[in-house]
Amino acid sequence: MAVKQLSIFIENKHGRLSEAIKRISESDVNIRALSIGDSSDYGIVRMIVSDLDKARKLLGEDILSKVTSVVAVKMDDKGGALYRILRVLEEAEINLKYTYAFTSNKQFGAYVVLRVDDVEATEKLLNEKGFMLASDEEISS
């Protein structure tokens, strides 16, 4: 069920982010969500894209990229929806490395992406608590 996220390493220098995005954009690959974690020297760009293999190919070998499994949870685009998910994780003492959310024009209003150590256990827990998990197909299209 886990969703595949594309992460790329970008030096904190003029034009580097734009160059990476330009390469992906020179095709029909759509970026569904994007979040950046940064230090003073570099940023790590995390993306959900419509065609992961194609995006990696377009980035080429000189832009460092990798694929990470993350949990994507569907939620209503309403106040309190994110907190309900986070509370479950907190009670189960699941450590979040990072998280980001994005809205959608689908039946569910929004998705939250959770980066955790144990994807399987987190998915199992969220399932048991009645949350809906997103698959690669639906989140990336």
Binding site: S7, F9, S39, I44, L64, R115
Partner: peptide, 15 residues
């Protein structure tokens, strides 16, 4: 230089 297998999507790991 970072090698591909050293790259982590998590900034805390990198730091």
């Amino acid at each position: 230089e970072l090698s591909p297998d050293q790259f982590s999507d998590n900034i805390a790991d990198m730091q």
